[in-house]
Design a protein around this nucleic acid. Sequence first.
DNA 1: CCTTGTGAAATTATTCACAGCC
DNA 2: GGCTGTGAATAATTTCACAAGG
Lengths: 254, 254
Amino acid sequence: MPERFGRRIPEPTVVRLPVYQRVLLELSSHGVATISSAELADAAGVNAAKVRKDLSHFGTYGTPGTGYDVDFLLGQIQRELGTDQERPVVIVGIGHLGHALARSQGFAGSGFRLVGLFDSDDKVVGEQVRGVPIRPVSDLAGVCHAERVAVGIITTPAAAAQEVADHLVTAGVGAILNFAPAVLSVPSEVQVRHVDFSAELQVLAFYQAHPEAAPTREAAATLREARSRRAGPAISMEANENGGLRALSERQGP
Amino acid sequence: MPERFGRRIPEPTVVRLPVYQRVLLELSSHGVATISSAELADAAGVNAAKVRKDLSHFGTYGTPGTGYDVDFLLGQIQRELGTDQERPVVIVGIGHLGHALARSQGFAGSGFRLVGLFDSDDKVVGEQVRGVPIRPVSDLAGVCHAERVAVGIITTPAAAAQEVADHLVTAGVGAILNFAPAVLSVPSEVQVRHVDFSAELQVLAFYQAHPEAAPTREAAATLREARSRRAGPAISMEANENGGLRALSERQGP
DNA sequence: CCTTGTGAAATTATTCACAGCC
DNA sequence: GGCTGTGAATAATTTCACAAGG
């Protein structure tokens, strides 16, 4: 039995959970009933031992000789991720990027609900994006308290990011996703993650300039490849017209 | 002397390099002449030993008793990152996110030049963003070859991402930055990095749901705090009206 | 057979701590 | 006295490899 309580979950494991979830979601939507750690690993671009070790932190969800029940495992991961209940989020800084995120599909399916958009520019305040009005930053604390906002997304210029983070923290927001190219200073109980577009480009450039220093990547396979490469006669799939998956046989075989 | 040649650079080190670069850029623009590993660490949200170890992979750039010369160190990091020469990039998938990236400032300052925008939708083909025309995806290979494109950015929906990646690889693009929520399968010599907005949100949600599992974060300080906390009388700074830094004394003291 | 879950081993990354230099 | 660079120690993560289950 794995440690199931106040245990620390390795951060790399947590980061891989959403990837597994996405793969399982796709498999489930195609009616695939079970998947082995090796297949899931291929589709997620990791290796099988890592998948098993990752999952073992949460429970023993698999069946030796068979693999994992797709829907059951999906449910467990969603429960762990808290995807099963909706968390209210706000976006501060409604420039092009803030707009793009506000319009994206990323919230609905992932357990988040956009409850507020904020900007300091009076020219955009009052507009609506997806039915959510853009408000002045002075309304931030009020909305965060009223809606019990859990996560704040910062898409301001770097110069404003720290000030916005301070406001979010004051308003009781306990997690911040920062897209601004700035290092934020917040109390240690506040979780921060940083998405840094140009830093990612620079990392790619570095490895291009120093190919000998590049890490050797784990090979990924498409879902279709992962299955067909390993599937025996009882389970087979073929590509459909969208490049997606079609399960030809599931649950009990053909 | 550190190993200076075909050595492998730890990926975490490479990822921190752009952060150091940004801090140094700000310091340099404020005329600050030198910085210690402890100050740089505070500003970057890491610790001093990590800064020194990271830098030691590339050379011995510091002066015991004094610290690092800001401009010199900045130059060395930019050289390592290849920021000193411009790399052509293309963006494929000009929806809201693609648009936002195309308009962002992230390219100019970081050593990249946007040379092509591509979309499969005839309704947007022909438009221009920042003077760069949106072209059909069928032009992708031609432009990539002609401009010797090094990095491709994918901002398509997940369903199209693998196909686009295949096109980029065929066109000789050796590095891909993928914003689509899909795991890409590419040859091992092609570098891929994945920016996954909703996965980041989910990670935040996870740690909010399991505070006992959260990693203890390194405290960061603003540049101003980092300096004033440690600076002796010979070097001092105060905040200017923009919340930025003003160096009151540099090079030789007041 | 095949596949999981997991200790043990290996690898990788971080942090310590201090000799040596300014 | 302060600060770097770096081996040595520690911690974290990954991978191996295999006993046990279906």
